[in-house]
Nucleic acid binder design. Sequence first.
DNA 1: AGGTGTGAACACTTTCACAGCA
DNA 2: TGCTGTGAAAGTGTTCACACCT
Lengths: 224, 224
Amino acid sequence: MPERAFTAGLRLDRVRLNISESTVRRLSFYLRILEKTGDAGVDTLSSEELAERTGTTAAQVRKDLSLFGSFGKRGLGYAVPQLASELREILGLDRTWRVALVGGGRIGSALFEYGGFRHRGFEIVAVLDADPAKVGTIWGDVVLSDISNLEAVLRAESVDIVVLTIPAEAVPDVLDRVVAGGVRGILNFAPVQLRVPSDVTVKDVHMVMELEALSFALSQTGGE
Amino acid sequence: MPERAFTAGLRLDRVRLNISESTVRRLSFYLRILEKTGDAGVDTLSSEELAERTGTTAAQVRKDLSLFGSFGKRGLGYAVPQLASELREILGLDRTWRVALVGGGRIGSALFEYGGFRHRGFEIVAVLDADPAKVGTIWGDVVLSDISNLEAVLRAESVDIVVLTIPAEAVPDVLDRVVAGGVRGILNFAPVQLRVPSDVTVKDVHMVMELEALSFALSQTGGE
DNA sequence: AGGTGTGAACACTTTCACAGCA
DNA sequence: TGCTGTGAAAGTGTTCACACCT
């Protein structure tokens, strides 16, 4: 792995440091804003401006960034393209990730159709489902595989990340085989707790739970 | 030692108390587990068992529940149907919520197709889009409306919650009109920060940011 | 004995406030 | 002067440990 002398010390720190979930989510948001303002021809942004556009505070922005290095210029702010490039490297977005979609049902096909993943470097290289009627159908430039070949497909395609959109009942069996297939990152849409080895990272997207949280919030304020 | 008021006052406290995001998300998860185990014929669950199934700790479960009342029986645990019913009431799920889907593009139509919302009491009563070619098309039992009628449709259908699946550029204008339409809950899929009055609640679903968080996690451990 | 409810301790995150540099 | 980078303070959320009840 190539190292740059300039930031070499910081690079090493970051594996030891415990970077919080919330910090990472904000970094991703900062990057989005930087790309957007960069396209608009702006070449410098202050922590204050970044904070305003991402709904946080200037101090928070500076703290988040300072965990990884000193990217700003005092009195000026941050150089947009440079910081964007740093963030891409920090987030591991300076490469393409190979993604398998496990579950070709409604959510699965929706995510595939959506297409927003590919633009940001997440390429769907395989789609799998248990339904024999779906196996062999063409999805974009991918042929849907039988989930019984899960491990083999994951290894053959060098899959880094699995997007899991199967029903809750199917999870225990499929999850074991995803892990056995060497995958260490899972984006989970099934409304169950995934139990995985500590070297596997899971991020959950639970839309219904978010709706229920809205329901809670509306009930609170509405009842006053 | 100061004497505490008897538990009768807790219901009232709950509007004043600040319940954290994470607590609400866990409550929603507890409810799911309770419904699942209830269907399986189990009628008592300990905090330990609930914790195990939701990926948290027994102390956390008890703390979360104790914010709203004393629902358990010492030495026994929690009665499944009773606690489920309490949680539904706490979360405001003892009613139906009227939802409008604003944005009939890929994500929007995917969410509509998905159908998982209706089962949990979130009924989609309107779909809106700016594309003239889509206006008038039939979505289930709903006719897609022109987004230029947004406020009127929201009021006519007594919409409680908007699911926002429009492109980032369209957000500022549409958001103002959603708020003007009297909606106080928004499930946002657009990758921008929504600025809303304090009586409006927003929950974000940012799938690409979750993928980027996975990318970060994989880059960290992979480099060691 | 067994498991809840809860104050107190602890850990983590955010905000403050200001030194230091362009 | 303007804005970053960062220790210290404040605030929030989680875990511990045990009294208490069935």
